[in-house]
Design a protein around this nucleic acid. Sequence first.
DNA 1: GTCTATAGATCGATAGAC
DNA 2: GTCTATCGATCTATAGAC
Lengths: 185, 185
Amino acid sequence: MARVVSERKDALPALAEVFREHGFAGASLALISAASGLGKGSLYHFFPRGKEEMAAAVLEEIDGWFETRLFRPLRESPDPGAAVAAAFEDVDAYFRSGQRVCLVGAFALGDARDRFGTAVNAYFARWIAALADAFIRAGRASAQAQELAEEIVLEIQGAIVLARAMNDPAIFQRALNRMRARAQG
Amino acid sequence: MARVVSERKDALPALAEVFREHGFAGASLALISAASGLGKGSLYHFFPRGKEEMAAAVLEEIDGWFETRLFRPLRESPDPGAAVAAAFEDVDAYFRSGQRVCLVGAFALGDARDRFGTAVNAYFARWIAALADAFIRAGRASAQAQELAEEIVLEIQGAIVLARAMNDPAIFQRALNRMRARAQG
DNA sequence: GTCTATAGATCGATAGAC
DNA sequence: GTCTATCGATCTATAGAC
């Protein structure tokens, strides 16, 4: 029977949750060890450069998930309108209506931005570019598509902040519905 | 000649900057001491309950600033349209076009939300309520005013996240201009 | 590969001189 | 009030047994 954690990749979801909940500075190795079920020795075996390498690996995994599940369909789907609608569904599920934090956005607000600035920037740049691509293929003018994409990514981040601050997923839902209407209009 | 720090209040701006830049967990007493010019002994003289009391005092000061500069004018100005326009100006200046983080929003994303949940919630609730009040007095229907206010506060938070993530104040400016248009329309 | 034990630095917080 | 010195706890990271 396969072990729960038999390679580095298997530990990443637990690590991601710790970084999401506690931030980079607040994510101690003790918390990471407890959440992943791995001792410090094992953690340093998988991530020789320590916490920084753990966070970088988590960012890379998140980036891969978004690339596969959101960005590529937005860029390549033959039906861009359906791809945009599906993307809103995926965003709602992934962020659990704002009760789950966007790790990249949280890093952007703190001093982790200095360490992981390139990854943070690239994540949002590709998100906006993929959305804009879908809007253009759906018939919008390039400049308008670009601004609408930026507006939507920005509003998703704001919805996470406000829904969490007020502990009210309905705020996230209302924001998402406004975005859907704007994306279709 | 008056000393630079002669009472607790004088230390708060420096403390606020440290919490903004490093988050609650990342704001060590060594950083706070260096930024404020106060030794640990003095810090504990002003804030006997330590870091938690420092952060609470900072949140209270921020709340007071917003109440005086933004919320009260929005609720009480005889010209609600002008108050809304002035509020956008103040927001732009205060957050330096997104290059300065909203401490309350940053706390909302991390585990500091559990400690300061009431203050975080109240801050955003009063911000939204004050904006909605101005919109109603400017002639909007109550439900629409409430939703527009929520949308704007949400979008300001998203603009800070995205402008910082991409290190581009123009993103903040564009978002603010969209909000101004929506608030006037 | 995974663990325990522990090093060395830094943490939040306190004590006491001045 | 402000400082220095220092406490015990916790931190990241390493070493070495298995």
